[in-house]
């Protein structure tokens, strides 16, 4: 009853890749086995050489064993190459699957885009219609504006009256204007004649200041 995710599906592609991977595993197993075999044979070779340190080069058994090891090594190398090939193939396949998804996505996108474009087919007509509607709207606005023109005289009268009122108001207000502050200025005063006179004046000013303090 709950939210059960659907079963994981195994597709045909999965099965194909599985076949490939199984052969890869087989090669991997073979490589491991051969590796072990080589290691054990090398150990055997060593012991045989130790047992017969003088004539081991002539010993056919040892020669045979060494040959075998070399052959196994050769096989191991081949197996490694094949393993790499298979691995590459698997990754190529996986990438192709992703590419397939990509192409499918493009297809879908294209479909949707064309569908949406179809919706836009009436756009020209729609725009024309909108334009005519707006021009009609403008006409209506003009008409409405003109109908107000009849009252325009009245507006002018109002303006005139307001102007008159304003004049009156300003006239009334003018006397109440604050008098301009008369700042002391040197204008009209005679030029200073000499510094002595200046200092004398200064002294007298000081005396006045002292008196004021006292």
């Amino acid at each position: 009853m709950g939210q059960r995710p659907s079963r994981v599906k195994i597709t045909k592609n999965d099965r194909a890749i599985l076949q490939l991977k199984r052969s890869k595993d087989e090669i991997h197993k073979f490589a491991k086995r051969t590796d072990n075999l080589i290691a054990s044979e090398r150990v055997r070779l060593k012991t045989m050489i130790q047992e017969d340190p003088k004539h081991y080069k002539e010993n056919p058994k040892i020669r045979f064993l060494l040959k075998r090891i070399h052959y196994q090594n050769h096989l191991l190398e081949q197996a490694g190459d094949q393993l790499i090939n298979l691995e590459n193939l698997v990754s190529t396949l996986e990438f192709k699957l992703v590419e397939l998804q990509f192409v499918k996505g493009l297809e879908h996108g294209n479909e949707i885009l064309s569908k949406l474009n179809k919706e836009f087919k009436g756009a020209d007509q729609l725009m024309d219609n909108v334009q005519s509607q707006t021009s009609y709207q403008n006409e209506i606005n003009d008409v409405l504006a003109r109908s107000v023109v009849g009252v325009d005289d009245f507006e002018e009268e109002l303006d005139k009256e307001l102007d008159q009122l304003e004049e009156q108001f300003i006239l009334k207000k003018e006397p109440q204007k604050e008098p301009e502050i008369q700042m002391p200025s040197t204008e009209g005063l005679p030029d200073l004649k000499s510094e002595e006179q200046d200092s004398a004046e200064h002294a007298s000013e000081e005396i006045i200041g002292e008196r004021a303090l006292a």
């Binding site: 995710p5 659907s6 599906k9 195994i10 099965r15 599985l18």
Partner: peptide, 20 residues
């Protein structure tokens, strides 16, 4: 848990798994 499916080989032995 529906996170995986086991794939059996032709003899019914499990050989592979797909996890999502």
């Amino acid at each position: 848990r529906h996170r995986a499916t086991i794939v059996n080989d032709e003899y019914g032995k499990p050989v592979a798994v797909k996890v999502v």
